[in-house]
Simulated scan of single mutants.
Amino acid sequence: MAENEKRRILFICMGNICRSPTAEGIARAEFARAGLDIDVDSAGTEDYHVGEPPDERAIRAAAAHGYDIAGLRARQVTSADFERFELVFAMDRMNLLALQRFHRGIGAAPTLFLGDTELPDPYYGKARDFERTVELARKGVDALIRRLRSKARHAS
């Protein structure tokens, strides 16, 4: 990445209506609070919900914690995303495998957002599962902020 190039981070789940837009919304808000100028986006490995807003339960859970994701719209990941984004995070191993097959060694290699831990899909669950998604995404974003700051300190 060139020194003056803006950092870009992409969060990916299956349909881009629950986990990845939640992570995107939290990252946007928390990066801004932390004074980090980073472009954030999200996408899905599948095209089930392209153009749709996040699941209403995800919107409510995020809003209950002060994050507005209602204006986001689902899209499907493209091969160009691996070149556009510095970091590409999958929410679980199934989507990581799909991304690794799609990636083909060009650009950013996808990794799991929460390290060795998966962010479970709340779609078929209860409201508390969406709350848990917000909690885990917030912890992941906090860890990412620490990592980015540490990397910046070591680079200077």
Results as ranks from 00 to 15, higher is better:
67 Y>Q: 06
76 Q>C: 08
108 A>H: 05
75 R>P: 06
76 Q>R: 14
37 D>R: 10
53 P>I: 15
72 L>V: 07
114 L>Q: 02
40 V>D: 02
37 D>H: 10
71 G>C: 10
66 G>E: 08
123 Y>N: 02
53 P>A: 15
60 R>L: 15
116 D>T: 15
110 P>C: 09
40 V>Q: 03
47 D>A: 15
95 N>T: 05
89 F>Q: 00
127 A>V: 08
75 R>G: 09
93 R>D: 07
115 G>H: 07
70 A>W: 01
123 Y>R: 02
88 V>N: 02
117 T>Y: 12
48 Y>D: 04
106 I>G: 08
37 D>V: 15
88 V>H: 04
65 H>N: 08
122 P>S: 03
126 K>A: 13
104 R>F: 10
120 P>L: 08
60 R>M: 14
84 R>T: 13
77 V>N: 01
45 T>P: 03
99 L>M: 14
82 F>V: 09
121 D>L: 06
121 D>F: 06
114 L>E: 03
64 A>P: 04
107 G>R: 09
96 L>D: 00
61 A>L: 11
38 I>K: 03
31 F>V: 09
91 M>F: 05
129 D>E: 13
34 A>Y: 09
76 Q>F: 04
74 A>F: 07
102 F>A: 05
50 V>R: 02
107 G>Y: 06
93 R>E: 12
128 R>L: 07
80 A>T: 14
69 I>Q: 03
73 R>F: 10
129 D>Y: 10
114 L>W: 03
132 R>L: 12
65 H>K: 13
34 A>D: 11
